[in-house]
């Protein structure tokens, strides 16, 4: 019987401990992603791109060729690489600000063009790196530095439901899901399916992961988990949102 290794092979020990705050959701998402890549055996051809936001702290996280880009621009950089070298597997990693606000045009248009890359977005309901401002994903009435009295949906609109939006415009072959750091096994499987979609040339995959930012939420461990598991899931449905037809039948 073989023993399951504790850490994915892609986990680059030389750069650990990692740079994220204790209790942060980013490294959990990255661990699940690393396991998915390991299990698919595609590390030799995978390129990882990270955005500006706390995701940038992953620039030396993996045993993977990696590029840190500008805020919101990781998707086009990875699209550029994939178009030039289709044999590579390209992953764009970003926050909710990067993907749904400043870089939203790239997410929308990459989905429409069915770009054969996988975009992964950490939804922590805030702009974390810049100190906890309101993000597109900030929950109704949630207090942040720029919504100190709570998000007023009349003024700021409803929180962005990214995967639902992408699913509505993406090709029928696209793969779209929302996972959470409270179900890492499921999240890993979503990543695997998204990556397989890319390997098979079916096109765009988009996976949002509900994530935690205890630093900006100013929450302890229990409050953190309650927010992710109870509050966030009221608004953000976890599960597959669009899976290519064949997969659903199979």
């Amino acid at each position: 019987m073989s023993i399951q290794p504790q850490m994915p092979r892609l986990w680059r020990r030389e750069t650990k401990p990692h740079k994220f705050c204790p209790g942060c959701g980013h490294p959990l998402i990255l661990k699940a992603l690393a396991e998915a890549i390991d299990e698919l055996g595609i590390a030799d051809r995978t390129i990882f791109g990270c955005d500006i936001g706390c995701s940038l702290l992953s620039w030396d996280f993996f045993n993977l060729d990696t590029v840190q880009t500008h805020h919101g621009r990781t998707t086009p950089v990875m699209v550029g690489i994939k178009r030039a070298r289709p044999e590579l597997i390209c992953i764009a990693y970003m926050g909710d600000g990067g993907g749904y606000a400043i870089g939203s045009q790239h997410l929308v248009n990459s989905a429409v063009r069915n770009e054969n890359i996988m975009a992964v977005l950490a939804n922590n309901t805030v702009y974390a790196m810049t100190g906890g401002q309101m993000a597109p994903t900030t929950m109704p009435d949630q207090k942040t530095e720029t919504s100190p009295y709570g998000r007023n949906v009349k003024e700021a609109g409803n929180p962005t439901q990214g995967p639902e939006m992408v699913a509505a415009i993406a090709s029928q072959d696209a793969y779209v899901a929302r996972g959470t750091i409270s179900k890492l096994g499921q999240l890993k499987n979503f990543f695997k399916k998204g990556l397989k979609n890319q390997m098979e040339g079916k096109g765009f995959s988009f996976i949002e992961a509900l994530s935690a930012c205890p630093t900006n939420w100013r929450t302890n461990a229990e409050e953190t988990w309650n927010f992710i598991e109870k509050d966030m899931t009221k608004y953000y449905t976890v599960g597959e949102i669009k899976a290519p037809v064949q997969d659903k039948e199979g």
């Binding site: 880009t69 950089v77 699209v79 550029g80 178009r83 030039a84 790239h106």
Partner: peptide, 14 residues
Amino acid sequence: ISAGFTTVGGVLSG
């Protein structure tokens, strides 16, 4: 914006 950054990607890929 995208044309510039996709060009960056293409060049990075060699």
